[in-house]
């Protein structure tokens, strides 16, 4: 006779399944390669144009520069793509049914899919950080490299907050939009509306999610009050969007 209680915590099994599927789809590798390529290209461009000793940037600034390129557009695009694969793509192909027939609760399936996508995005941010610190060795240093490496860890962590927000919104989108392209279009539409909305809401623009993208690059320069306000707004947004998405996913016929 089977005893369910003898199995380990099923969330970790479901999470592992989702991670395995994510890595087999290969998109996450494309994101990791892109993340590694950005600092490499910046370094190569500098050295080939100005020579190794005369590079325009120091190694301590490389990660911040790479983060500024990577997080506003590329990282959210990959994050949305991973979420879309886990929900919308499976739904349209019919394999979502196979996923939710695994012996775990709907809530845990939802959490595992969302956490899996976040892990993929975090792996990309980690690669960007690692590649910046490795390729940065080819650039001249100001001498406080170790301190800068520490700050860059904070910047990398800061860059994940907007990703949580993007994933939260994308997960919500997957519960209402039936195709991956539709999801991307609706996200692009939302960004456009948010960009335009500053004409109507004035200073509130700084509280709009679109303004948070690329947040990590400046996180260590932000005043504490503004940092706390932005982070709490991002988490609130993520909980709000993720919560609505979960409620719908739980009741959804697959």
């Amino acid at each position: 006779m089977k005893t369910y209680g003898t199995t380990p915590n099923t969330f970790f099994i479901t999470f592992r399944n989702e991670t395995v599927k994510m890595f087999r789809r290969n998109k996450v590798y494309a994101g990791i390669i892109t993340a590694a390529a950005i600092p490499l290209l910046v370094v190569l461009a500098n050295i080939s144009a100005l020579g190794r000793g005369n590079a325009a940037i120091f190694r301590e600034d490389l990660f911040r520069l790479a983060l500024g390129i990577f997080t506003p557009v590329i990282l959210p695009l990959f994050a949305v793509s991973l979420v879309s694969d886990a929900f919308t793509d499976e739904q349209s192909k019919g394999s979502l049914r196979t996923s939710v027939l695994m012996p775990d609760s709907r809530t845990r399936h939802f959490m595992a899919k969302t956490t899996g996508a976040f892990t993929g995005a975090a792996a990309m941010a980690a690669t960007l950080w690692l590649a910046s610190n490795i390729f940065g060795l080819a650039l001249p240093s100001r001498g406080d490299w170790l301190l800068s490496a520490g700050s860059s860890v904070l910047q990398a962590a800061g860059s994940l907050f907007p990703v949580i927000m993007v994933i939260g919104f994308a997960v919500l989108g997957t519960q209402f939009v039936k195709s991956s392209s539709g999801l991307f279009l609706s996200l692009a539409g939302l960004v456009l509306v948010m960009k335009m909305s500053r004409f109507f809401v004035g200073n509130l623009y700084y509280f709009l999610p679109v303004n948070w993208l690329g947040y990590g690059a400046n996180v260590i320069y932000a005043p504490a009050g503004s940092l706390a306000m932005s982070l709490s707004m991002m988490l609130l947004w993520a909980v709000f969007t993720g919560g609505i998405a979960l409620l719908r996913f739980e009741r959804r016929m697959v």
Binding site: K2, Y4, T7, T10, I13, R16, N17, V20, K21, R24, R25, N26, K93, G94, S95, R97, T98, S99, L101, M102, P103, D104
Partner: peptide
Amino acid sequence: LYAGGFIIEQPELFGYMTAFDNLMLKGRYY
């Protein structure tokens, strides 16, 4: 779900994975 096995309508498995890896998605729970 743990005690049962299901085929509902036309089941779709994960084409980018091998047959055994597909089965292990369920096998890991046991």
